[in-house]
Amino acid sequence: MTHAPVPGRTTAAPIPVATGASPGWRGVRLAMVTLLVISAVGPPALLAMLSASQSWFYPALLPTGWTADAWSAVVRRGPLARAVGTSVVLGLTTGVVGCVLAAPIGRALARLHGAARHVAVAAAVLPAAAPPIAVATGLQLTFVRAQLAGTPVGVVLAHLVPAVGVLSFFFFAVFTAYDTRLDDEARSLGASPRQVWLRVTLPTLRPQLGAGVGLGFLVSWGQVPLTLVIGGGRVHTLPLEVMGYVQAGETRFAAAAALLLILLPIVLLLVASARLVRGSAPASAPAPASAPAPASAPASAPTRVSA
């Protein structure tokens, strides 16, 4: 309950939301919170433990011996460390270039009406929604002919295919919610369209641009099929390392690589969500400028973080 009992109150507190407050419900709530927290904290903790366990044979509940060889391999700039570097560079490039391309596209989409809007939005979402493996196999020979297959540039271009799809839709939602009166005001104060874009629109949307770069980064950061097919085994990213270690049964290294793959995005998320989660203000309050994208446009987050 959000309201503490007020001393001396003579009337029962009405229940402003649809749910009641019976003791049974409280128990269910407690169980749900516990489950959610475990599901959030458990996997990273588990991976951390696995990544340092020398031997953890069935049926021991905890590792019976510890080793840091997986981590020292990371520190000693083994293949894992190189993969981290490759993934970070690919992710940042995809995020920044994706936003530069997708922000104007999203704005153009948001201004469409009627049938054109539906067709254009569907077209923009298509690369993000088509099965990534099919996108990869459908494009591979074209990349080979362009001599891009197996090169980092080719892999960035391949990652940009779904990333620009995701980000176009993200910015479509952002610009659908954007109050264009701000731009109008700037125009009537004498700014050119270009000046409005650079001096008003983009600065106003700085938080959303940050989120966009993060989203583009994530699309590339977890990508497997496009790296696998277009990279042709010559571009080693962290997700491919995870795949390889799991399939080879190298539990310790798989766990270390997976943990690396989690840590950076979770730190990013926690930084970003400090703003987002505070929300759920009373319905009557106007949404803050940094509030999540509008309800019906779940764009703020198409999540396929991998694939």
Binding site: H3, V6, R9, T10, T11, A12, P14, I15, P16
Partner: peptide
């Protein structure tokens, strides 16, 4: 209407004290 709590007093509608009733 019963949508916010009141700290004292009563609301009678049609001769019925509704102060403790939900909306």
């Amino acid at each position: 209407a019963g949508l916010v709590p009141c700290t004292a007093g009563r609301v009678v509608i049609g001769g019925r004290d509704v102060s403790a009733l939900p909306p």
